[in-house]
Design a protein around this nucleic acid. Structure first.
Length: 140
DNA sequence: CCCCTGACGGTCG
DNA sequence: CCGACCGCCAGGG
């Protein structure tokens, strides 16, 4: 597979992610058929032009965390706003890192089109059980 | 050709 | 939950 084809495959796959749902770089790579190319999926999104109609914000790391892209860059913040804009709850961790809850919005179908809600079982509640989840607290 | 880097992933303590 | 480590693979210096 060519690099251009790979990028195109990434874009096509990302376009399949439903509104308000989130998946990981690794899973995109898996859907394409190159499970060990998670890093390159991120690179493909990085090379993405603004004009492209690709919901890049719906792709985060396998742990649910939004990649920071290094301090000084606003990429992570933009992604957060884009996600919240479509109703996805973004959790702010103690270190300032951002993350989503896969048990809520995760999208991990084995194949595109075979979405059978597999996510709600795998990660068994990231500690948001019963206890207060003050996600709506005044940050900053 | 060697070495470092990166919008990553999985395991282990 | 978190940090330390190691593995992966294509690009770039």
């Amino acid at each position: 597979m060519d690099i251009a084809e790979f990028h195109e495959a990434v874009y096509q796959t990302v376009r399949q992610i439903p509104f308000g749902r989130v998946t990981s770089y690794g899973h995109i790579a898996k859907l394409i058929g190159l499970p060990r190319h998670s890093r390159h999926v991120g690179q493909a999104l990085k090379y993405l032009n603004v004009d492209a109609d690709v919901p890049w914000q719906r792709v985060v790391s396998s742990s649910g965390k939004i990649s920071s892209r290094g301090p000084g860059t606003s990429g992570a913040q933009r992604q957060r706003e884009a996600l919240e804009g479509e109703g996805v709850e973004v959790r702010v961790m103690r270190d300032g890192g951002l993350a989503v809850n896969f048990s809520e919005c995760g999208w991990f179908p084995e194949r595109v089109g075979a979405e059978e809600e597999v996510a709600t079982e795998t990660v068994g509640t990231t500690g948001v059980e019963g206890e207060n989840q003050d996600a709506g607290q005044p940050q900053e």
